[in-house]
């Protein structure tokens, strides 16, 4: 897990930013990553702040925008990159792609691609942990759009009534694809207050302040671990690039240039860097050093992925069933 010092949190955010920027460039330029990819560039503080407050054996489930939580939870970078390239040694064997990352050894239980379905899965996983009387907890990342799905409400209700140890982490980036929150949810209401309606504690946090996110998440995880039931965090943040894909979408008309710029000014990495400058005057050089290290690490992961074989076509059916016989003859 990430070092929980402010410096450690910053370092992890820089790493994720480097990964995503390099992958976005490759995605755009090479057309070898052939899987719908949802980048978290600009919202790294939510994933890093929350996952740094977990233990390795706690479980994280997410929606489609999953690279940042996967990496922040300790998911294997090489296997993630190989998965994006559709290679056999990808974390899902080339069957899942960007939206179905998984790394059980790191406590990353899985990313899901239908809005909000990962919420109920996390509740079930957390319930299983509680049934076996472990002290582990589960967490689920989802966006503001997912809070409109019925299963969000059903999951909060069930988790509250059964006191299930799950932290609901809403990354509110204000847009569902191109639709603003104001067009989708009633004025004067908030997501975190809905959780209070189900009788669980909830908190609204500046999602671009990694230290604030970390502290809130630590309190939420502790609350769950102590057997008090669920907890919800609403983390306000912002996605810089297009909903899906590597590009900027400035000027297509659903948000203003000024709005995007104002959020780039609130970049979580720049912010953490500035906050550290007093105690670490050379923090900018430090970040540059890290970037160089990470670029080398990522470059190696990309080279590895490119050199890895694709899954053999003869194995197309593997994994559809636990035994090969169940796939019906002549049904390929």
């Amino acid at each position: 897990m990430t070092s929980t010092t402010h410096r450690g949190l910053l370092r992890e955010m820089v790493r994720i930013r480097c990964v995503e920027e390099m992958l976005a460039d490759l995605y755009r330029d090479e057309r070898e990553i052939r899987t719908p990819t949802h980048f978290s560039i600009g919202q790294e503080a939510t994933a890093v702040g929350v996952c740094s407050a977990t233990r390795k054996d706690d479980l994280v489930y997410t929606g489609h925008r999953c690279h940042a939580p996967y990496l922040a939870k300790g998911g294997d970078l090489k296997r993630m990159v190989s998965e994006l390239y559709g290679k056999q040694d990808g974390c899902a064997g080339g069957r899942g792609g960007s939206m179905h990352l998984v790394d059980l050894a790191a406590g990353f239980g899985g990313a899901t691609a239908i809005l909000a379905e990962g919420i109920s899965v996390a509740v079930g996983a957390a319930w299983a942990l509680a049934m076996r009387s472990t002290s582990r907890v589960a967490l689920t990342f989802f966006g503001d759009g997912a809070a409109e799905e019925g299963t969000f409400h059903e999951s909060l209700n069930l988790a509250a009534v059964r006191k299930i140890p799950v932290v609901f982490v809403c990354e509110n980036n204000n847009y569902s694809i191109h639709s603003p929150l104001a067009a989708r949810q009633p004025a004067g209401t908030t997501i975190w207050q809905r959780a209070q309606g189900y009788g669980m504690p909830a908190e609204y946090v500046d999602g671009n302040d990694v230290l604030a996110v970390h502290r809130a998440a630590a309190a939420a995880v502790e609350w769950c671990r102590a057997g008090n039931g669920p907890y919800l965090l609403e983390l306000r943040t912002y996605r810089w690039r297009e909903h899906v894909g590597p590009n900027w979408d400035r000027g297509i008309g659903y948000r203003t240039e000024a709005e995007v710029d104002s959020w780039i000014d609130r970049c979580p990495i720049r912010r953490a860097t500035a906050a550290l400058r007093a105690e670490e005057p050379a923090v900018d050089e430090l970040v540059d050093t890290w970037r160089a290290e990470f670029d080398a690490e990522i470059g190696a992961a990309v080279a590895h992925a490119k050199a890895s074989p694709f899954p053999p076509v003869e194995d197309l059916l593997d994994g559809a069933y636990e035994d090969a016989l169940s796939s019906q003859p002549g049904r390929r």
């Binding site: 239980g109 379905e117 109920s120 509740v123 079930g124 319930w127 059903e154 999951s155 069930l158």
Partner: peptide, 22 residues
């Protein structure tokens, strides 16, 4: 279970993914 078929089916999946047999 509460009258929440959608979430409860997902809950069963999550529990099964963590070693239970719902």
């Amino acid at each position: 279970l509460p009258n929440s078929e959608n979430a409860c089916a997902g809950v069963a999946v999550g529990a099964a993914a963590q070693g239970m047999r719902p």
